[in-house]
Each structure stands twice: as structure tokens, then as C-alpha cells.
Amino acid sequence: MGSVATLEKLLPVLLAFGCGAVLARRKVVPAEASKAFADYAFLFAVPCYLFGNIYASDLGALFNWRALSGYAATAALAVLVVGLAARASGVREPRGVALRIMAGVQVNTAYFAVPVFITVFGDAAPIFPVLLFQVCVLSLVVISIMELGRADDLADGHADGHAEDGAATTGVGTGKRLARAVGASLTTPLVLACNAGILLNLVSLPVPKVVLDGFAFVGDSASPVALFALGLHLGGLGLDVRGTTREEIALIAFKCLGFPLLAWAVCGGLFGVGGDWLKYLVLIAAMPTPQNLFIFAQRYDIGVDLSAALVIKSSVAALLLLPLWIQWAA
């Protein structure tokens, strides 16, 4: 019953994605347009969604610090595991490692967890603290690495044929690029929207209803546009299930099985989290890789095909495993 209701909640997700895939396959909309849709979601729609929801939330009721500390410790351990595994498999590009960490540790909240929680618990509020942690901590780290990597690419392009100049400025230049990367990550619309929502919520500064309605109107388009962009990309590329690589299998297995089991062990065993919050955290950890992975990959031009495959395949795996996790949580 719970799994059937969950599938019904996820039908809009399948519709938005499938429409993009069909239109791209029939060449009605060019697959290259997926980047424009992804940029719209990353730079505008998702920040509007986050600001409005965070501003309207009861932050005091949502933050169970023991539970969140346990989840943060779980995520830190998972980052270490995925990062070391990526390096051991031969991935040397820092942006490539960061992308794989995001695939294995971050979860699909807005597009997957929300309908699941509404179905199982009747409330999606427990998701927002984890969403804040993802955006303000995990995403900040990933964005910093991506921005630093892009700065390195630009520097290499400008310094092509001038190796002596690059060697002379390696120490200072790297520090400046890192500072610029951190600054750029802190001023992205995604992070600014979350911080603004928290700040205005804490100081109880009233925001005009017409403004909040505008944010809600735009924010409601975040999920379908991101899914449509993903469908466009995969519709043009095609998705070969038989061609799934060992790396994809390992990342999907860790995301859909390893990470939730790790959350259960760390949060329940080490931090003493129990009751409903332990169910919340394990079920959140069992959610698939987020669409934001594809948006980040599109924006920073790194691992686009891998990220698209991981988002879709982890979503299918999570959907198949969902009845088991729901039964456990119930």
C-alpha cells in the first residue's frame, strides 16, 4: 500500500523526465538545450524554492542536534570512503573526485524524498535540516572544488606556451584562485538563498507576501525543469543499461544500500539516535543521487554522461528498494 502510494506520488517525476527524453529522441527539442534548462534550475528556480521554504519553516522544531550531528558524521565518513575509492580507481582530477562524492553522499530531497515522506509520514518537514546541511556544507565543498578546477582550466588556457610564468606564480596563484573559488561558491544563488532564508527566519524579518508568492511561483518550476533537462540530455545521449560500468554499479550500491546502513550504524549505534528520527535519517540516506549532480556536471562541464546515468539508475534502484525501506521504517 505504502509503495503503491509512493509510486503514484512519483508519477509527475516520471512524466517530466519522460517528456524531455521523448522530445529529444524525436528531435523536437535539441538535446543541447538541456544546459540552458539546467542553468535556469541551478541559478534561479532552485534558489527561489529553497528561500521560500526555509523562510517559512519552524527552524527550532526542525533541528534535533543529536540526530543532525549523527547524520553529519555519517556523511563525513561516507565522503572519506567514496573519495579514497575514487582515488584508488584512478580518478586524479579533483572535480572528478568531488562529483563522485556528491553522487555517493548527497541525496535527492526535493524530487524524491518529499513525496516519499508525505506518503509514509504525512509530513516532509524532517527533510529540511538535512537539505540545509547538504546545501550549506556538502554543496559548498563541491562548488568550491568545481570553481577552483574551472579557475585552473582558465589559468592553463591563458598560460599556454608560458610555462615559466605558471611556475613562477604557482604558490601565490593557487592561493588566490582558492580564495576566489570559495568566494564564488559562497555567492552562488543556491547558497545565498539558503543563508538568506535562515537569517530572515531567525530575525523574524517580515517578507511581503507578494514576494514570497513570486518565489513560490518560480520555485515550483525547479523540479520539472531540472527533470526535463535531464530527460533532454539522456534522450539525445541514450541510456544503455547493459553498458553500466563497474564504477556506476559501485556508486549506486553505496548510495542506495551502503549509505543508509552506515547512517543506521553511526546515528543509532554511536550517537544514540532512536525513534522517529532514526527512521527519518535512514530513509533520507536511502534516497537516490540528486538531480543537482547533473546540473553541477552540466555547469562545470565534468562527467556529464556519468552523472546523468547515475541520477537515473540510482533513482530506479532506490525505487525498487523503497518498499523494503518503507517496511523497515514502518
Rank of each mutant, 00 (worst) to 15 (best):
M1H: 10
L7Q: 05
V13Y: 07
V13L: 15
L15Q: 08
V22C: 13
A31S: 15
A33I: 05
K35I: 12
K35L: 11
A38I: 00
G52W: 00
D58V: 13
A67K: 04
A76W: 00
L80Y: 07
A86M: 08
A88C: 06
R92K: 14
E93F: 05
R95K: 14
G96F: 12
A98N: 12
G104Q: 04
V105H: 06
V107L: 10
F112V: 13
F112Y: 14
V114Y: 03
F117V: 12
F121E: 01
G122V: 09
A124L: 02
F128M: 12
L131K: 04
Q134P: 02
V135L: 12
S139W: 02
V141G: 08
A155S: 13
H158W: 12
A159W: 02
A168K: 12
V172W: 01
G175I: 05
G183K: 09
A184F: 10
T187N: 14
T187Y: 07
P189S: 14
G197M: 10
G197Y: 07
I198R: 04
F217R: 12
G219R: 04
A222G: 05
A222Q: 03
H233A: 13
G243H: 13
T245K: 13
E248V: 10
K255Q: 10
A265I: 00
V266C: 08
L278F: 01
L283S: 03
M287Q: 11
P290M: 11
P290I: 12
P290S: 15
N292Y: 05
L293V: 07
F296R: 07
R299D: 02
D301C: 11
I312V: 15
K313E: 13
S314W: 03
A318L: 08
L322H: 01
